[in-house]
Design a protein around this nucleic acid. Sequence first.
DNA 1: AAAAGCCCCTGGATGC
DNA 2: TGCATCCAGGGGCTTT
Length: 271
Amino acid sequence: MPELPEVEVTRLSFADCIQGAHVVALHMGKALRWPLGVDPDVLTGRTVQGVRRRGKYLLIHLSEGLLLLHLGMSGSVSFLSKPPPAGVHDHVDLVTDRGTLRLNDPRRFGALVYAASQTAPQATKLLGHLGMEPLSDDFDLTAFVQGLKAKQAPIKQVLLAGEVVVGVGNIYASEALFLAGIRPTVKACNISKPRAAKLHQAVRDVLARAVAKGGSTLKDFSNAYGESGYFQLEANVYGRTGEPCRVCSTPIQMIRQGQRATFYCPVCQKH
DNA sequence: AAAAGCCCCTGGATGC
DNA sequence: TGCATCCAGGGGCTTT
């Protein structure tokens, strides 16, 4: 999926358009990861009050209740004033009087879930365990260091798990660890405070840069206007197995951690 | 309690 | 060209 930058760019691309709109209908096609959890018809007439983001979830706040939208691995949304007939992978149409928010998701790992409130069980189940927001003031260095101290797992997997910090997906986890000079296999609790501080900064930097570039490292990502950002941001290690490190020319290595690929430079990331 | 594995699903790339 | 295999941005759930 889309990692945090892509989700944030997606949010920015339709939040202003849909704010204040009235829901006309909600059409759900093929099953996504979870059922909506409510009769779609009950949403008709409610007002969209705003779109926020928590981790990789988009929170579409209604005059009553909210919709949790996740793009999964392959989801993208578009906001259309005159939507063409739904294609095979278009699974959600949130029709409003300002336009239709359409979810296209070939792999259907995405989800749209209704929650009566942010503290309702449907919401807390998905959001309750999430860690700090890396691009907000919430991302406190001391709390980050303490969070890492509490984890025995390899740092790459701790970043991915989203319990310490959210939004770092498989690409940016490798990229942030490269920037911080940390080997992905190191136990999180064994990272010294100064090195954790470097990682803290690296996570912020890599995500903020990607947002500024329009969420660009993903090869088939496009925002709600259908504009794509095809590898505008150069990866240092991700997907570069065997290619020379941009700093020291050592071939980049690929390993597997928790059935996900991890890339690193064995020289720049010694431990 | 925490960490590791297991799936969900489809399409594109690669290999024989 | 055709078919089989592998791989992919996530993450909740089940098993160790």
